[in-house]
Simulated assay, not measured.
Amino acid sequence: MPAHAVDIGLPELTATRKSNFLLPILFLPPPKREAIETIYAFCRYSDDIVDEEADVKEKYRRLLIWTSELQLALQGVSRYAFLNRLVSVIEKFHIPTHHFLDLLKGMEMDLMKNRYESFEELEQYCYRAASTVGLICAEVFGYHHERTKEYAVNLGIALQLTNILRDIKTDAKKGRIYIPREDLRRFGYTEEELLSSTYNDRFCELMEFECQRAREYFKKAKRCLAEDDKPLFTAARAMGNIYYLLLLRIERAHYDVFTKRIRLASPVKFLVAMVLRLRNKLPKNFHRYIRTELPA
Rank of each mutant, 00 (worst) to 15 (best):
P2T: 13
V6F: 07
G9Q: 13
G9A: 12
L13Q: 11
A15K: 15
S19C: 05
P24C: 05
L28H: 02
P30S: 11
A35W: 05
A35N: 09
E37F: 11
E37C: 07
I39C: 08
A41V: 01
R44V: 08
D51C: 02
D51K: 04
E52W: 02
V56Q: 13
V56A: 14
K59Q: 07
Y60R: 15
L63H: 03
L64M: 12
W66H: 01
T67I: 05
L70I: 01
L72E: 15
Q75V: 07
S78D: 06
R79G: 00
N84D: 13
V89K: 03
E91S: 12
I95R: 00
I95F: 10
H98K: 10
L101F: 10
L104W: 06
K105T: 10
G106A: 02
R115G: 06
E117V: 00
E117I: 07
E117T: 11
S118A: 06
Y125T: 02
C126H: 02
R128N: 10
S131D: 03
E139W: 08
Y143T: 04
Y143D: 00
H144K: 13
H145P: 11
L159T: 09
I168V: 15
D171P: 09
K173L: 15
K174I: 05
K174V: 01
R176N: 01
E182T: 10
R185L: 13
F187L: 08
T190D: 01
L195N: 11
L195M: 15
L195E: 14
Y199Q: 03
E205T: 10
L206H: 03
M207S: 11
F209R: 12
E210R: 12
R213V: 05
A214M: 07
E216Q: 15
E216R: 14
K220F: 07
A226M: 10
P231V: 07
F233A: 02
T234P: 00
A236E: 12
A236M: 05
A238S: 15
G240F: 06
Y243D: 01
L245E: 13
L245T: 13
R249C: 12
R249M: 08
A253Q: 12
A253E: 15
Y255E: 08
K260C: 02
I262C: 03
L264N: 10
S266M: 10
V272A: 09
R277C: 11
L278Q: 09
R279V: 04
P283V: 04
K284T: 14
K284L: 14
N285F: 14
R288P: 02
L294C: 08
